[in-house]
């Protein structure tokens, strides 16, 4: 039996894996001082102002934290004046700040796992966190120049912080979040997406590669089938979060030589209060049979090795093991 990493590398080479890569098993996601410099909002706790000045709330009983966007809390009220109000967080931290993360990193066996910093929010997400999403989406039409400038500024932050991250964590992979769509569509038309985001992402992903990263994983748990050519051009190796609405089998057929599709198992179907092992197995098996073995990693679409409802993620892991035995 191949080791976890060998099996992943076979999958990446479109070679001969002896089973499915099972969800996130091949990668350890690492946090970094950005996440601790300003402690994030906790469930039921008070709202916090994040390092970009965005107020984040996390009421009890919510599946996750979110930005508060009433008139008072929107950071950028007039995008043409973004320079007056947006200030990027620190791009380097002290050795002391890094110490706990370095320790965590050193404990990871690199023969078995990839080491990937977890970067979120992504560049697009950052724009709508700052502007409020509807204002933001309109601003791409109404104030394209200001949007280009703001995006360039966020990109500069990412490029600079990449240096500090790679110096300390020496990652060989990257896990980068940016939700580019809804369930059935992208937020922006592919042309507009490319006009604003293709070059910035090419730069960011190239910078990580220059700093030693071999594997770029991008998370978008949405529809984004029409952006796959752009993902490939950006240098993304693995698209994590691909929802079933993208028609994964068709994408593999078309683009399987150039990018790996990780997902297919919609969290809305398996991550619910009344999930059962039998139903999860059936969903996973159907997804795997339709997608096949090439260029595909079955995975919950969620952006991390976890679920909202206890046990739902692990049930997918177990189901993939069962299906692997049948299919390999």
């Amino acid at each position: 039996m191949l080791s976890i990493k060998e099996n992943f590398l076979e999958t990446l080479k479109r070679g001969n894996p002896d089973r499915y890569v099972n969800q996130y098993e091949f990668v350890k996601l690492l946090m970094h001082p950005y996440w601790t410099a300003t402690p994030p909002a906790t469930p039921g706790g008070p709202p916090v102002v994040n390092p970009w000045g965005v107020t984040i709330s996390f009421p009890e009983g919510m599946p996750g934290p979110f930005p508060i966007h009433d008139e008072e809390h929107i950071v950028v009220k007039d995008v043409t004046k973004w320079k007056d109000v947006v200030k990027a967080p620190a791009t380097s931290y002290s050795e002391e700040d890094w110490a706990p993360f370095v320790e965590e990193m050193e404990a990871i066996d690199r023969n078995e796992f990839f080491v990937a910093p977890f970067i979120a929010p992504g560049i697009f997400e950052q724009t709508h966190y700052l502007l409020e999403i509807q204002n933001c989406l309109m601003a791409f039409y109404e104030e394209p120049e200001a949007m280009h400038e703001l995006i360039a500024y966020i990109t500069e932050f990412e490029l600079a912080y990449a240096e500090d991250i790679c110096k300390h964590l020496k990652p060989n992979a990257l896990f980068h979040h940016d939700d580019w769509g809804t369930q059935k569509s992208t937020f922006l038309s592919p042309d507009m997406f490319n006009e604003f985001f293709l070059d910035p992402y090419k730069k960011v992903y190239q910078r990580y590669r220059d700093l030693g990263v071999e594997l770029i994983i991008h998370h978008s748990d949405s529809y984004a089938a029409t952006l796959v050519p752009s993902m490939i051009e950006m240098g993304i190796d693995v698209w994590q979060g691909v929802m079933s609405t993208n028609n994964v089998p068709e994408l593999i057929e078309k683009y399987g030589d150039d990018i790996i599709f990780m997902g297919g198992i919609d969290s809305s179907k398996i991550d619910k209060p009344d999930w059962t092992a039998e139903e999860t197995l059936k969903i996973v098996e159907d997804v795997c049979r339709a997608a096949g073995k090439r260029a595909f990693i079955p995975c919950n679409t969620m952006g991390g090795p976890e679920s909202m409802y206890p046990g739902a993620y692990d049930a997918v892991t177990e189901a993939i093991k069962v299906v692997s035995k049948k299919m390999f």
Binding site: Q134, L137, M138, F140, Y141, E142, T182, K184, S185, T186, F187, L188, S189, M192
Partner: peptide, 10 residues
């Protein structure tokens, strides 16, 4: 699906 959310909003 010929246009997107921004087009609809503006």
């Amino acid at each position: 699906d010929e246009i997107f959310v921004p087009e609809m909003l503006i």
